[in-house]
């Protein structure tokens, strides 16, 4: 069975920012977290998938179909939530639904009303009067009401309270219970992904640093803590990022087993969290 999403050599040049050779794939039935600091290129990747931006190079295939040549078919199978929910502010939720629903052949009115009830959303209220959390819930309700096979969420949890974040993650986990469905979820709140993501793709400065199974990432990557002797020349090749304080050195390695083999026994080697990885890879190249 083809992947839900397959991106190959995707490139986009803005002049002051470049997305370079982005390649990764998301199998069906899984959740992928797209992580990276602000400005890393996550939203650009998502916009290229949705054909909101013109790519310079590369290809995007969704369920085996090119996102440009089969645009309508592809988009009808995608549910999306943009980073800022964008709707006509002066319309009520019911009217907004009426502006979106007719474009989907598979629109499920019952599912929509079920979600509205579940999220406790007032259909007669104007969009402008909703809180950010409620706006996000409404966008999610729309995205989940047309039997989409791939859900693409761009920073859906940023600025939201932990209760709703937990609720959203539960919803996403339930969504992929149907093994044909997949989720691509961009965020810089890595703790969310440690709960639910099966795959992690890390983007920094427009390039994919890695794209692997979450368990593999958490198993392989580690933070090494020790004294300044850690920075000996023969160890340097082990490290992908270093933080040095007066007497303590912390370093990130992508090969925990190798680090354990090569480093002295008294060096502390701990599993790295996604946040550690993101921190070291983006900020951990110099001194503290």
């Amino acid at each position: 069975m083809e992947d839900a999403l397959e991106i190959n050599g995707l490139a986009k040049d803005y002049g002051d920012f470049c997305l370079k050779n982005v390649t990764f794939s998301l199998p069906r039935g899984y959740i992928m977290g797209l992580i990276g600091p602000n400005g890393a290129g996550k939203t650009t990747v998502i916009k290229l998938i949705l054909n909101l931006l013109r790519r310079d190079e590369g290809s995007v295939n969704i369920f085996g179909l090119d996102n440009l040549t089969s645009e309508v078919e592809v988009k009808s199978r995608i549910g999306f939530v943009h980073d800022m929910p964008i709707f006509y502010e002066h319309l009520t939720l019911k009217k907004l639904k009426d502006t979106v629903a007719p474009f989907y052949l598979d629109w499920d009115e019952m599912a929509f009303h079920r979600l509205i009830e579940e999220f406790d959303l007032p259909l007669g209220k104007r969009f402008s009067r909703l809180s950010r959390g409620m706006k996000m819930k409404f966008a999610l309700a729309l995205a989940l009401s047309h039997r989409a096979d791939l859900l693409i969420l761009d920073e859906p949890t940023s600025g939201l309270d932990p209760v709703f974040r937990r609720e959203l993650l539960t919803k996403l986990s339930a969504f992929i219970q149907d093994e044909r469905k997949s989720v691509l979820f961009s965020t810089h709140i890595t703790s969310d992904l440690e709960r639910i993501a099966d795959f992690i793709t890390f983007i920094h400065n427009g390039e994919v640093v890695f794209s692997s199974r979450r368990d593999e990432v958490l198993e392989k990557w580690a933070v090494v803590k020790g004294g300044p002797e850690l920075l000996a020349e023969e160890n340097r090749s082990l490290f992908r990022g270093i933080r040095r304080r007066e007497f303590v050195v912390q370093a990130l390695t992508a090969d925990r087993a190798e680090a354990r083999r090569r480093l002295p026994k008294d060096i502390l080697i701990e599993k790295a969290s996604l946040e550690d990885i993101m921190f070291f890879l983006t900020r951990g190249n110099g001194h503290a």
Partner: peptide, 17 residues
């Protein structure tokens, strides 16, 4: 209205050419 709400992005994300 489209400009104010930046809804162009939303409707361009729907299954439409």
């Amino acid at each position: 209205y489209e400009d104010q709400g930046r809804t162009e992005t939303l409707y361009a994300s729907l299954p439409l050419k």
